[in-house]
């Protein structure tokens, strides 16, 4: 956890440029770890209701960008804006309250709590909305992700695929406007990844949130996303529709190579 920043609400200032927009965005974000330039000036904007893919080779900075967007790391330079507020140095829970939910590349559940409690923590700690019935919401989410049968089991006792679903359910329970998914299809076979595609489509339709999804499964990304953002070595290589990205010479050379021809 980053250290307490000690800033009052005064630090959440409104910018005339962004006050009206309801997006989550990274502006020229740089993140260095000692010598490693994990991110070197990346800008990305996520609108509610759109599905954006974030792809790139291993170590290109995808997870780091998600961590900066969700407040886990303060960036070395650059800003992060959420719904018109500068949240660059705010703690993760403040950003979660503003409507940013996420999952982790290596699943991070509350292992010894029950599946229901995992989702419940999300519901009672997420974005504040008047008149929420937490229990009904939790029940509905458990049902939606076929977890009702294991609601009272400890999260760590579930098989891998079910744990991934718990993580998404927990993030959705916080009523996010933006959902950041870090390799949700990792370790899934084709059928499971198709299922996941349906799930994410359904989430966008029913919850209306913007989804930023990181994955190496290009088949999934190309079918799911309206827009794709390609990272390589901490810089943006290309952005655009799946068609544009697929046609981009640089992308093909540097990263996609044969994978595209085979998979798509």
């Amino acid at each position: 956890m980053p250290a307490e920043q000690g800033q009052g609400p005064a630090a959440v200032v409104q910018s005339s440029e962004t006050a009206a927009d309801g997006t989550l965005s990274a502006r020229e974000v740089v993140k260095h770890f000692r010598g490693v330039h994990a991110l070197d000036g990346v800008s990305l904007t996520l609108q509610p209701g759109e599905i954006v893919g974030l792809i790139g080779p291993n170590g290109s900075g995808k997870t780091t960008l998600l961590n900066v967007l969700s407040g886990i790391y303060p960036p070395t330079s650059g800003r992060v804006w959420c719904r018109g507020r500068d949240v660059t140095t705010r703690k993760p829970h403040v950003i979660a309250h503003l409507g940013v939910g996420r999952t982790f590349q290596n699943i991070r559940l509350f292992s010894h709590l029950t599946v229901r409690q995992n989702v419940e923590v999300g519901s009672v700690s997420g974005r504040k909305v008047e008149g929420v019935d937490h229990q009904a919401d939790v029940d509905r989410l458990l049902d939606r992700f076929s977890l009702s049968g294991s609601a009272e089991a400890q999260a760590l006792s579930l098989p891998y695929g079910a744990q991934r679903r718990v993580e998404i359910a927990r993030a959705l329970a916080g009523r996010p406007l933006f959902l950041l998914l870090d390799e949700p299809a990792a370790g899934m076979n084709e059928a499971e990844s198709d299922q996941l595609l349906e799930t994410i489509m359904g989430v966008r339709k029913d919850f209306g949130c913007g989804v930023l999804i990181v994955d190496h499964d290009l088949r999934l990304i190309m079918r799911l996303c309206e827009r794709i953002h390609v990272l390589a070595e901490g810089v943006t290589l290309a952005t655009g529709t799946p068609q544009e990205v697929r046609a981009d010479r640089q992308v093909i050379d540097v990263f996609l190579g044969d994978a595209l021809k085979d998979d798509v």
Binding site: M1, S70, G71, I72, K91, P92, H93, A96, H97, G101, R102, F104, R108, L109, F110, S111, H112, L113, Q117, N118, E120, V121, G122, V124, S125, G126, R127, R170, A171, G174
Partner: peptide
């Protein structure tokens, strides 16, 4: 519940909205 979540994983508790 929030405190137990932080016991299990403080980082993902924070990301879930737990102070």
């Amino acid at each position: 519940l929030r405190l137990q979540a932080s016991r299990e994983d403080p980082l993902s508790a924070e990301s879930t909205g737990v102070s």
